[in-house]
């Protein structure tokens, strides 16, 4: 904009050579900066920062660090991880979306932020995929409905037959844990009260202490207690049986339309030049192929879901629409009825 204004003015002053030269050189510089040809060799021009919108130590953070660590070799640049927690990841995502689209700044996305959180919070706090270039999908993290091992309920059928009110713990408002349980209990006609806790660990403490009847927790968090025999898995909410819990049926198998999982993807700001995106895609695929990363997935019970950016956008958009439709159909208010 600046350049065109300058060009217009210089034209009107008719023939001031110095000004014209300045304008031309300025325009030339601009073309070189945004042009495609040079970028492939320029990129990466320094460390590529991966911003994570969650606290260090959580599963999102672990995944981000594992990808960054294994992608930096193929990228030929260090990939430092920066945690910028806030508003369920919205803060970090908005910041990256607004940064210079040169591929040097990336963000790790949670599908729930795009597909579920908007169902609970106001419009202006919601984040849209339109502002980003998705580089690649990463993995799928499943949720499991658990009861205390002393509980008499073993299947969804048992819960329905009991025909009495229950309390269920969620990992927070606007999370996949809340959506999955709300949908399941509503579809099954069970009178369930949604009790939000501040994350997976407090929700698990509550179910271990018999403070609530059920809880839905990420599999990685629940497995130690499932294996110790303290918690009993009832259903998982993935579309297909989870490879790490092959004996536990899905909610779909039990007859309820609740396909809820957490997906994660890596993205750059909208307008990042194609050559840079291509390099990033290659680096991320290289990370996925490494033995170290595969082992990481197995240890943490993540199911790889390494699809391309277009498919991520397609799937997440479809999920958002599906959740919206289900929530409206069953008249569920994630914001709580209080």
């Amino acid at each position: 904009m600046f350049h065109s204004k300058l060009a217009l003015r210089s034209a009107s002053t008719a023939g001031a050579a110095a000004v014209l030269a300045l304008t031309l050189s300025a325009c030339g510089g601009n073309v070189a900066n945004s042009g495609g040809s040079d970028d492939a060799s320029d990129f990466p021009s320094g460390p590529v920062t991966l911003t994570i919108g969650q606290d260090p130590g959580g599963s999102t953070d672990l995944i981000g660090r594992a990808v960054a660590e294994n992608a930096s070799d193929a990228l030929g640049a260090p990939m430092p991880v920066v945690n910028k927690p806030g508003a369920n990841g919205a803060l970090a995502t908005k910041e990256v979306a607004n940064s210079t689209p040169d591929g040097q700044t990336l963000v790790l996305l949670n599908a729930s932020l795009i597909a579920i959180t908007p169902l609970a919070v106001s419009e202006d706090e919601a984040v849209k995929l339109d502002d980003l270039e998705v580089i690649s999908g990463i993995s799928q993290d499943d949720y499991v409905l658990v009861a205390n091992a002393e509980s008499e309920y073993k299947t969804v059928e048992d819960i329905v037959v009991a025909d009495k009110p229950f309390n269920f713990a969620t990992t927070g408002v606007g999370t996949a844990s809340q959506l999955a349980q709300a949908l399941l209990f509503k579809q099954a006609g069970v009178d369930g009260t949604d009790v939000p806790f501040d994350g997976g660990s407090p929700a698990m403490t509550a179910i271990l202490g018999n403070q609530v009847d059920f809880a839905t927790i990420q599999l990685g968090e629940a497995r130690p207690q499932i294996e110790a025999g303290a918690l009993r898995p009832i259903v998982t909410f993935s579309e297909e049986r989870n490879q790490y819990l092959p004996d536990v049926p899905t909610a779909l198998e039990a007859g309820y339309d609740v396909p809820v999982s957490q997906y994660r993807a890596i993205a750059a700001p909208k307008g990042t030049p194609e050559p840079a995106l291509e390099k990033l895609r290659e680096a991320v695929s290289a990370a996925f192929e490494s033995e170290e990363y595969k082992q990481f997935n197995e240890e943490n019970l993540f199911t790889p879901h390494e699809v391309d950016g277009e498919q991520v956008v397609e799937e997440w958009t479809a999920n958002a629409a599906k959740y919206k439709e289900l929530v409206e159909k069953y008249d569920i208010d994630l914001g709580g009825e209080q």
Binding site: G86, E125, P196
Partner: peptide, 14 residues
């Protein structure tokens, strides 16, 4: 944490 409503945030994501 129960309703998703913002309190005293003055529209700031921070």
């Amino acid at each position: 944490g129960f309703t998703g409503e913002s309190r005293f945030t003055f529209g700031s994501l921070e």
